[in-house]
Design a protein around this nucleic acid. Sequence first.
DNA 1: ATTGTTTCAGAAAGCGGTTACCGAATCAGT
DNA 2: ACTGATTCGGTAACCGCTTTCTGAAACAAT
Lengths: 356, 356
Amino acid sequence: MTRRASEPVNGRRRSTIREVAERAGVSVATVSRILSGDYPASPATRKRVMRAVEELDYVANAHARALAGTSAKSIAIVLNSVISPHYAHVAQGVEAQAAVEGRLCLIGTTGGDAERELAMVKFMREQHAEAVILVGNVVADEKYHKRMGQYAHALTAIGSRLVLCGRPPLGPDVPAVVVEYDNAGGAFAATSHLLSAGHERILCLGRRPGYTTQDGRVAGYRKALAAHRVPHDPALEVEGTTMEWHEGYRMMKERLATGPRDFTAVFALNDLIASGACRALTEHGLRVPDDVSMVGFDDLQPSLDLNLTTVHLPHEEIGRTAVRLALEHEARGGTPPHVVLGTHLVIRDSVRPRVS
Amino acid sequence: MTRRASEPVNGRRRSTIREVAERAGVSVATVSRILSGDYPASPATRKRVMRAVEELDYVANAHARALAGTSAKSIAIVLNSVISPHYAHVAQGVEAQAAVEGRLCLIGTTGGDAERELAMVKFMREQHAEAVILVGNVVADEKYHKRMGQYAHALTAIGSRLVLCGRPPLGPDVPAVVVEYDNAGGAFAATSHLLSAGHERILCLGRRPGYTTQDGRVAGYRKALAAHRVPHDPALEVEGTTMEWHEGYRMMKERLATGPRDFTAVFALNDLIASGACRALTEHGLRVPDDVSMVGFDDLQPSLDLNLTTVHLPHEEIGRTAVRLALEHEARGGTPPHVVLGTHLVIRDSVRPRVS
DNA sequence: ATTGTTTCAGAAAGCGGTTACCGAATCAGT
DNA sequence: ACTGATTCGGTAACCGCTTTCTGAAACAAT
C-alpha cells in the first residue's frame, strides 16, 4: 500500500531516526540508544551519530516516543482563564512544582463553562496526563457531576489523579484529591477585624449564591457577626453578578444612590470588588479609610495598589500542594487526601476605628 | 519477544481499541472509523461499539492517534511567567484565537531564563506544535541567538513557525513572524501629555538598559522632550533592576530621600512601578495627582485601581495576531510578516496642570 | 435467476520510536 | 594460540491507532 507522507506540510518532512541511522551508517537502535541516555557506544560511533543528527536537524517525535513507552510525564491544569490573577498564581505554583518533580505542564482554559471543562478533562486524559488539576468554581448541574465522577474513576483506574483546587469534593465516593483553602476562616478574621474597630454596620459586597467559594466567605462574615453579638441585617449583603472591578463599582454606586448610607465599613468578597467600590466611594466624596473602612479578599494587586487590608490566600501553595499530593497519592494509593490550607489577614491601612 | 505492559501504572492498564473491538465483536478498523467521524455503519454495529466503549471506558491514545496521522493541531506559547498580567493577557489572546482556529494550546514558562527558553522551544518542536510563540524579552547572548536562529529555520523547514511577540526580530535572515507594539509611540504620547500640562521636570522611572521594550519607551520619552524643546536631563532617568511594584517603591523612596525633589511629574515605565512610586510619594506626604502628576504604562490593574493615566497596550490582540499571522503565513509561505501594533494613551485622572 | 451496485466491515501496512534478544568483534587469561 | 568474558551494535517485535485496499453481503435492476 502507498501511504501519504507523514504530514502534508508545505515544507519538507521532518527527518526520522531511520534517516539519521542511515546517514551515520548505523542502525536505528544505536541512534535511539545514544540519543536517550548513557549507552556505552564507542566514541567514533557516537560522534558519527551526533553529526548526522546535527546535519539533519533531527528532533525526536514525542508522540512516537510516548507510544513506545518512555515519555516525559506531564501534569495538566484546567482553569477558568489565565488572566485572573488568582488562577494565574495557582498555575504558577503548579508549574513550579511540576518542574521540581520533573514533569511538564499542559494548560487549558474553560471560560467557566462546565461543558468545556469536561471536554478539557477528556482531552487531558487522552494526552496521558498524570494528574488533571481543576482550579476554581463552575456552576454545575447533575449531569456534570455524574460525568466528572466517571472521569475521576477512570483516571484513577489508569493510575492518574483528578485534583480539585478551591472547590469542594465531588462526593464521598469520587476519588479526587482536594485542595481547598479556608474561605470562612479568612472572612471571619476580616469581619472580626472590622468589628473590633467598632464597626457594626458592615456591607458585605459581591456574593453570588451557588458559588461555594463565596458562600464560604459569606458564612465567615455571618459567623463573625454572631460571635460579636451584632445583629445580622440581610439588607447589608449585596449580591453581584460577577467578581470583577466594574461590578464592585456598580454595586457601590447603586447602593450609594438608592440604599441607605448606613454602613461604616465594607467587607468585599475579593480585591477587585474592593477596588471598584473604593472608586465609587471616592467619586461620592467618601474617603477610604477616613470615612469608610474597607477589607478585601485575595491579597492580589488591587490591595497592594490601594494599601488595603485583605485576606491572604496561599495562591501558589495551592498549586504546589495540588501537584505534590497528586504525585504522592499516585505512589501510595488509598483514599485521596483532602487538605484545607490556611488563610490569614494582612493588615495594611484601610481600616480605621469607627468614630461615633 | 515478551513486552512489558504498556505502562506499569499501579492501576489497571488503559483499555485499547483492540479490546473495544473484541468486546463489540468487530474489527479495530470499524471501531476507529465509528469513533472518528461519520462512517456509514449499520445502527446495530454502531450501538455495539458505543456500548463497548462505554463499558470499557475507552479513551483514545492521543499519541498513537497523532503518530498514525491525524492529531489535533496545537500551537505553543512560551513566556516568562503566567503571573505577570501582561503575559497572561497575551496568553489569553493566543488561547482565544487558537480556539477559534480549532487549535489546542500548549504553554510553557521560562522564568526569563534564555537557556530554559531554548529548551522549551526544543520541547515544543518535539510536540509538533504548529507554531511556537515566544513572548517577552530575555537577556540573550551570542549563543542564544545562534541556537534560536537554527530553531527558526528548523521549524520553518517542517512547516511550523516561530513567532516573536514584543521583541525585535532575531535577524534579517531568520524566518520568524514578529508582532511588536509601539513602545516609543506610547511613551511619546505619555510624555507629551505631561509636557502639555506644563510639566518639564519629568522623572522617567525604571529603565533597565538592554531590554528593548524599555529602551523603546525611554526613546519615546526623550523624543517627546526634544519635540517640546525641553532639555533632557539624564539625572531624571532612574534605572531599576526589575519592573515590579517594590522596585518602583524603592526607586521613588530613594529619590525622595537623596535626590533633589525637583520633578513635578513622573513617567513610570510600567503600571507596577507607577503604583509603587505612588505609595512612596504618599508616604512622603505628596499626593497624586495634586502634588505630583503620574503616567504609567501597560493599562493593567494598577492603573485601574489608582485611576492612573497610562498607555494602553493591545495585550490580547498581540496574542491573537500572533496566532493569526502564524497560521496565515504557514499557508502562504514567503517572507514572514512583521507587524507593529499601535498603543494609545488612556486618560484617567493622575495628571494635573503644573502650578508655577 | 443473474448481474451490477451499494453498503458495511475486515486484513494489514505503516506512523516513528524503544528495547529485548542475539551475534560478532574485541579483550584478557592461561 | 584458544577459550571465556565483555563490549558494541544489529534485527525485529511491539506501542495503539488510522487508512487503503479488498471482499462479502444486501439490494436493485435486467
